[in-house]
Design a binder for these strands. Sequence first.
DNA 1: ACGATATGTTAATTTAAGTTAACATAAAAG
DNA 2: CTTTTATGTTAACTTAAATTAACATATCGT
Lengths: 113, 113
Amino acid sequence: MPRVSKISKSPPAAVEDILNRLGRNIRTARLRRKLSREELAERVGISRYVLADIEKGKPTTAIAAYLGALWALGLIQDMREVADPDRDEEGKILERARSPKTAPKRKTLDDDF
Amino acid sequence: MPRVSKISKSPPAAVEDILNRLGRNIRTARLRRKLSREELAERVGISRYVLADIEKGKPTTAIAAYLGALWALGLIQDMREVADPDRDEEGKILERARSPKTAPKRKTLDDDF
DNA sequence: ACGATATGTTAATTTAAGTTAACATAAAAG
DNA sequence: CTTTTATGTTAACTTAAATTAACATATCGT
């Protein structure tokens, strides 16, 4: 993406590690299913070049391309619990320590009723 | 990303669902930690506008921006097992059914780890 | 009520993400 | 060995992702 963010240009080690893992895992899953890059890319709806980028763990690639690959491989459900509030113990503790506050709401501007 | 892929323009329901979940979860984690968008965005290394996009589940935003948000919230470890080959039972079965083959190697690309 | 903070919205700008095409090289299949 | 398939590499091109600035509106604290 134009005007590339710092996080994309030089991600912290932890982020780079996850990116590389994800790419390797997607590649492994593809090979196990005996799919060529071209075949998988077509199912995802991207070009083979972007799939190559994904397998390399490119930081600037759209998240939908990564998720599309997981989806086409039948692995998207692995994402369901990421950052799940029920599992965010740290967050739960912080919330309990403060006032019992729910998510703030804005008045909806698109009033279609 | 220019020349937006189909997967980004109109993601399958399963992908859109994950995207919306992720955005909501990141927002919840941020609020629990009493961080403003501006504060979290600065820690991530992105602008507050991109963080707003993330919380909306925008498909075309760079994966590194999403991962950076998880990282800054201390939730990046949730990504470690996504598409993990050890947990890919489908893939393991397929692999066993075929010849006992490991990842193909290119001469120029030596994978050392 | 007021002021401070948080978020929504728009516009202008920059620049690289993703596409296609063409060709090169490496493994696999025959 | 030859053909086919898979992947690497480059170039030209289109267009929207991300930034900044400015202002609007909503929410919170006092």
